[in-house]
Design a protein around this nucleic acid. Structure first.
Length: 427
RNA sequence: GGAGGGGUGGGUGAGUGGCUGAAACCACAGGUUUGCUAAACCUGCGUACCUUUUAUAGGGUACCGAGGGUUCGAAUCCCUCCUCCUCCGCCA
């Protein structure tokens, strides 16, 4: 959510943001300005009547005490009239406030000036590529064939038990996941993150806080009876951890890491994109979250990116970094990088991390502020997050890139102590 | 799931219908004093919003877990919900 005053003073900037992000109509800005004016007018009127009513009530109290019954009775009658007016004004004000709020929620974050303009994925800028790319003397297999050969993941029984996109990891496959989780968490802690174990379901306020609601409810599984949502990422519970809080400047930056399963409905996908581990309804991810002072957030974005890239480098995975264009970056972000690993068996890039600065967009919804020495009032903080990393596609890339002609799969140096072996073989 | 008791400002904690946006203490910030540290004393210190011929300023409104109600007037009374604690039940 953007600051109302910012929209008042920078209406064109916001209109451009809507156009560039291709998320709605720029007339939303005019709607906000109109509703804002209405709301302020109504608020002022309401407060004037409240002032009168308060004064009246106070007089009544004093007269009663002095025994001036007649005067008190007259004032009570006057109070009754004010009360009726008050009721109407309260209703108008509430309606105006709700419309304003709902319209504000439809306005996307403003992209940072360094974000390239564009509408399509092809407009994203490949900012960096990191090898080495694996060389093969044979045709490398896609990971789903390797998984089947070594009996590491059971998709069919997952489908039977839960549905497509809910695989069982089995034997060495399950252990491999666990090794990755521990490796990622340990790296994050080494980089100064505090490890969190987070709830896997959140309430509606939390889903709204990070921007899943409104509009993206179709992405989340919902426990309707209890009004809870299964988390699509640990970002949701971990960022909401500080919702409605005023933090101390001396506590910043705050950095958390959390491993959680993630649940995504992702309706409407099919074909090669969802083959094997490429896209699942449930997957494991380690998420990194920062709470920082506004002046530090772009430095924090680069730090976060470096932490995620460091993991890929330690795993020896070839990857590239994309700077997402305005049209492909999402509603809530002001700047976003994607990291994609090269998948030799499929000969394609797979997104394994998304690293974003939200500036105040999430924090304003969540009312996360901090008290600084220089400002009299609490300031809205900046939030950022990034995957470090999402597991399934990492598993896919590791299997495909490290497969040998004899069908075995080499485990990267960095993972060996976690996995307990240098080769991944049949369970 | 059953019974009972709580939720007040950064913290502890007073406050059972008007004198309470809220005592007191702690913490924090500024100042005075003392040779440093410490202590003592003084002052300040919630948030959001509206508004004022734009202000490190004034005026106003709302907020004492959330929402509704009673009343001229609610932190205070009533209802619903959330949450915490104690006991019982169930349970990994």
């Amino acid at each position: 959510m953007l600051d109302l005053q910012f929209i008042r003073e920078n209406a064109d900037t916001v209109r451009n943001a809507i156009i560039n992000k291709a998320t709605g109509s720029p007339t939303l800005v005019d709607k906000v300005l109109e509703l804002d004016e209405l709301w302020r007018k109504t608020t002022t009127e309401l407060q004037e009547v409240q002032t009168a009513a308060n004064a009246e009530a106070k007089k009544i109290g004093e007269w009663m005490k002095l025994g001036l019954k007649d005067q008190a009775q007259a004032a009570i009658a006057e109070s009754g009239r004010l009360k009726v007016a008050l009721k109407d004004l309260e209703d108008s004000q509430r309606i105006a406030a709700e419309s304003l709020e709902n319209t504000l929620l439809e306005i996307p974050n403003v992209p940072h000036p360094s974000v390239p303009l564009g509408k399509l994925p092809s407009d994203n800028v490949v900012a960096f590529e990191h090898g080495p790319f694996p060389a093969f003397t044979f045709a490398p297999l896609p990971h789903w064939e390797l998984l089947e050969r070594h009996d590491l993941v059971d998709f069919d029984r997952g489908s039977k038990v839960s549905g497509a996109g809910f695989p069982f990891y089995k034997g060495a496959g399950a252990r491999f996941q666990r090794a990755l989780i521990n490796f990622f968490l340990d790296q994050a802690v080494e980089n100064g993150y505090v490890e969190m174990g987070a709830p896997l379901v959140v309430n509606e306020d939390s889903a709204r806080g990070t921007g899943q609601l409104p509009d993206k409810e179709d992405l989340m599984y919902e426990a309707v009876r209890d009004g809870l949502y299964l988390i699509p990422t640990a970002e949701v519970p971990v960022t909401n951890y500080h919702r409605d809080e005023i933090l101390l400047e001396s506590d910043l930056p705050i950095k958390y890491c959390a491993y959680t399963p993630c649940f995504r409905r992702e309706a409407g996908s099919y074909g090669k994109d969802v083959r094997g581990l490429n896209r699942l309804h449930q997957f494991d991810k380690i998420e990194l979250v920062h709470f920082v002072r506004p002046e530090d957030s772009y430095q924090a974005l680069e730090e976060l990116r470096a932490h995620a890239e460091g993991l890929l480098q330690k795993l020896g995975l070839p990857y590239r970094r994309l700077l997402m264009c305005t049209g492909d970056m999402g509603f809530t972000q002001s700047k976003k990088y994607d990291l994609e690993v090269w998948s030799a068996g499929q000969e394609r890039w797979l997104e394994v991390s998304s690293i974003s600065n939200f500036e105040t967009f999430q924090a304003r919804r969540m009312k996360i502020r901090y008290r600084s020495k220089t400002d009299a009032k609490p300031q809205i903080i900046h939030t950022l997050n990034g995957s470090g990393l999402a597991l399934p596609r990492i598993v896919a890339a590791l299997l495909e890139n490290n497969q040998k002609s004899d069908g075995s799969i080499a485990i990267p140096e960095a993972l060996r102590s976690y996995f307990g072996s240098d080769t991944l073989i049949s369970a």
